[in-house]
Design a binder for these strands. Structure first.
Lengths: 186, 186
DNA sequence: CAAAACATTTTACAAATGATAAATAATCAT
DNA sequence: ATGATTATTTATCATTTGTAAAATGTTTTG
């Protein structure tokens, strides 16, 4: 499975670890807008985007809010549930047609005991994700919406394929405000 | 060292691991406002607050911004540097007189190979920190400043001992706005 | 293709927050 | 204790962002 090229580039896995991990990894293609995990569930799956794009979303006062985007070879987990066992008010959705690798987290965490290299791999992956989250705080805390938008445009060209309404809430502003910003920039 | 009561409550350590870890752990007391780590350094230390309170801060357009507070038994690290090896534009400062445990990170990471239980302990500690960071994004992204302030007041009574100017920037607003919010609430 | 559904922009006005400056209040150092 | 320094509040005005509603543009589907 192609995902191991990516994994091995982070932390090299023994053949045994690789085959143990392969047994709990599933590849699946989702349609545009298809919900991958519903709001209210417990997060028991670690996802990676093989191809396409997905988002983590929730509702606040009836409004759909995008908390996170994941693009090619990026992780998607609802950490506040995965690492606590509590249910989460967030869901996961494919934004466009996307192929996603899924790893059952309970099985994964069991492998940690036997396969030190798997524990290390996922430690490194989550550390990276933690760093991304800290960077996102920096931008939400004191950058203007315009600065945040400009920054987001830099991250990946794929942004062009994502509806503005998702981008607006991700930036912490309304769609109307984002539209205004864009008019301003031109 | 008392820190091991705390560590063992997260993941039980073998006596060997405990003594290896004890050898790289230092306890030190800092004065009010004393800088623990300067801006611009590389983060090569994992800190825990034994007693008191510290903050992570940086300057944006000449303004002092508090990114993070840590209270009793909480971790302080500048993740964007610790996990990448890059220098950081953030510093660490004791807000009041505080006793802090420091663990040299290079030595710590070396212990991971020999002591699986230490790697696991710190994996769990950082996962917890990651979850906190995600929760902070939730609050910065779509809660009003007033809601964020109310939420912060709930977290710990120690907040009362922290200057408002630090709290304002932590909430992502100016000191003047925070003052207004407080007047409003009364 | 055309109607329906969905997405984006525009407008007008309201509310929240920022910037600056000045007035008080609290704390610190000698 | 007292003068100096630092912290907080208040006031005024400017800017940003929100809300609501309508106009325009785009995509989907029968």
């Amino acid at each position: 499975m192609m995902i191991f090229d990516f994994f091995n580039s982070i932390n090299n896995l023994s053949p045994e670890s690789q085959s143990a991990l392969a047994q709990i990894t599933i590849e699946k293609t989702y349609k545009k807008n298809e919900v991958i995990q519903n709001i209210g569930s417990r997060c028991k799956t670690v996802y990676f985007v093989k191809d396409g794009c997905a988002r983590i979303f929730y509702y606040k006062d009836g409004n759909d809010i995008t908390e996170h985007f994941s693009f090619e070879h990026e992780l998607i987990v609802r950490a506040e549930s995965l690492f606590t066992g509590k249910p989460t008010s967030k869901g996961i959705q494919a934004i466009n047609k996307s192929t996603i690798w899924s790893i059952d987290s309970e099985s994964l965490f069991k492998l940690y005991d036997k396969h030190h290299d798997i524990e290390r791999l996922f430690r490194l992956l989550f550390e990276k994700e933690y760093v991304n989250t800290v960077k996102r705080i920096e931008s939400l805390q004191f950058m203007s919406a315009k600065e945040r938008y400009a920054e987001l445009l830099q991250t990946t060209d794929y942004i062009q394929k994502i509806p503005l309404k998702y981008i607006a809430s991700y930036l912490g502003i309304t769609q109307v405000s984002l539209s205004r910003l864009r008019a301003d920039i031109r």
